[in-house]
Structure formats: C-alpha cells, structure tokens
C-alpha cells in the first residue's frame, strides 16, 4: 500500500443473527481519494457517541475505520485526538506516517453522512 492509498472498512456486528460481515474499499487515484475524504470529513467523528436506545435489542452496530493517506493534510480532515491511534515505533515507516480514525455507530444513529459513507462503502465493495 503506497502513501496515497486510502482504506475504509465498515464492519457490522449485532443483529439477531449475530453474524459480522465487513466491507472495505481502497482508493489511490486523487479524485477518488478526495471524494471519499470529503465524505469522511463530513461525518461527526468528534460527536459524543450516541446512546443506544435502552429498550431496544438486536440492533446492528457499525464499526467504521478509515486509514488516511499521509498526504491528506489540507483536505479538511483534522488530526482528531480521539479517534486516532498514535503509531508505535515498531511499525513500518509507511504505517507510522499513516493516520487512522475509527468510530462505533449504532444503527439508530446511522443517519446523514454516516449512512451515506456506510452505504457507499457497501456499494463500492460489492462491485
């Protein structure tokens, strides 16, 4: 994976079946990367995690992880102290420069840009 490769993974857990499918995309061409990144940037990564409905059961939970290309600065995606994992010294140089964001979004909160991001990753992954 080169410096300019963006990777987004969506993993779904929960549901009455308890089956955990996942979908992922990679993009390395500039217009495509930028298009994904603007969608990523529009998601409320820093919003406090919404409380799942205390009385609901068997709803899906989505884990969304974005591995950002290192040259992504200036795209409006900030460093975000909460979702990012500081790279460890033992990782490869490329990985050490990459940045990662992740969020766990209950199905009941999967609206707006979160929904758009998940649906787009599912569709692109199926192709």
């Amino acid at each position: 994976m080169n410096d300019r490769t963006l990777r987004i993974t969506v993993a779904r857990s929960g549901g009455v079946a308890g089956i955990t499918p996942s979908w992922s995309i990679t993009a390395s061409e500039e217009p495509e990367v930028d298009s994904w990144l603007s969608l990523v940037a529009s998601c409320p990564w820093d919003a406090p995690g919404p409380e799942a409905d205390a009385n609901g059961a068997d709803r899906f939970v989505y884990s969304i992880r974005v591995l950002l290309p290192t040259a992504a600065s200036g795209t409006g995606v900030d460093d975000g102290a909460d979702g990012g994992h500081p790279p460890s010294a033992s990782e490869a140089p490329d990985a050490a420069r990459a940045r990662e964001r992740d969020a766990r979004v209950p199905e009941t909160a999967l609206q707006g840009p979160w929904r758009e991001l998940v649906d787009r990753v599912k569709q692109a992954s199926a192709r």
Binding site: G15, V16, A17, I19, D53, N55, G56, A57, D58, F60
Partner: peptide, 24 residues
C-alpha cells in the same frame, strides 16, 4: 434488510437479502 429486532415497543422484521437470508 437482514435482521429482526425489538425497538422497545414493537417487533420489526426485514425481508432478508435473498442470498444469505430469507424473510425473518
């Protein structure tokens, strides 16, 4: 929709994707 759930007031059933799951 590959699921059935309880939303606190009612039961809700999907039809399934037709490939892995049929109707719930």
């Amino acid at each position: 929709y590959d699921n059935a759930f309880w939303d606190g007031q009612r039961m809700v059933f999907g039809d399934g994707d037709g490939e892995v799951f049929g109707r719930f």
